[in-house]
Design a protein around this nucleic acid. Structure first.
Lengths: 134, 134
DNA sequence: TTGTGTGCAAATTGTTTGCATCGAC
DNA sequence: GTCGATGCAAACAATTTGCACACAA
């Protein structure tokens, strides 16, 4: 039984080859949009349907196993849920990197200025990645 | 000549009543999604087309006069471009508040950990607004 | 007068749904 | 054997385009 199989079971999702492949791809690539996922899975399952991708992605989001990352100027990507982190996006090549940041000072600042009770932080930083700086 | 007219001219956008109304609505309401804008403009221009809303919003984004704010779990909203700020979103009532935060410490942290050169920050904080806390 | 904006309809793109069949458990 | 997943086609939703006419400059 592979790791991916175990993961799916833990989240109460039935284990199908298509689902295993989705998890595998996301695990390998970190972030993928719907089309990228579809293209990758097509290679393994020539008759897979886009609808299957959508249904599974939505099911996994429902179980809080995947999350959607909405990015400026481009399509959303999906990733396996892990500890909270920010995203660095290269505005040139589109490369996305996860980064764990301490945002406590910012949250403290919010608390002093506003009466909102924050429970989730969504931070996307755009710029140039090391490669594209040149 | 109204303020909105001057604003449009400054951004090299021809002044039409529809455009003035879009700017006026966004100025009044702060953030609106496409449907809200459409509904509001329909009241003033009974034969306005959704296509006109889209074309104008896109033209204004092109001129960096409007910006799109992508939110978790809901449709994007649009706002007039102003100084950089974060968004507080109430996950219950959907209310959106602008807040100017000092994120320099976070950017410094990024600089020490990563080689990305950040030029734009996109921060959406979700939680309960003062009203919905009760 | 010239060129751009508007409104309509159609086209395109993105996502969801219904249903018969298949496969996980 | 049962129930949920898959794949297909159709439906639905969101956005864009083409074009004739109207209007801003």
């Amino acid at each position: 039984m592979t790791n991916y199989t175990v993961l799916l079971k833990e989240y109460n999702l039935k284990v199908t080859p298509q689902r295993v492949a989705i998890v595998e791809e996301l695990y390998m690539n970190g972030h993928m949009n719907i089309d990228e996922l579809y293209q990758k899975l097509l290679a393994k399952f020539p008759s897979i349907s886009l609808a299957t991708i959508y249904k599974n992605v939505n099911a996994m989001i429902e179980k809080v196993f995947l999350s959607e990352v909405k990015l400026p100027n481009t399509k959303s990507v999906f990733e396996l849920v892990k500890n909270e982190h920010a995203h660095l996006v290269c505005s040139l090549c589109g490369n996305i990197e996860d980064i764990t940041l301490n945002v406590q000072s910012v949250l403290d600042e919010v608390a002093t200025i506003s009466k909102f009770e924050i429970d989730s932080t969504n931070l996307v930083l755009s710029g140039l990645c090391p490669n594209c700086k040149h």
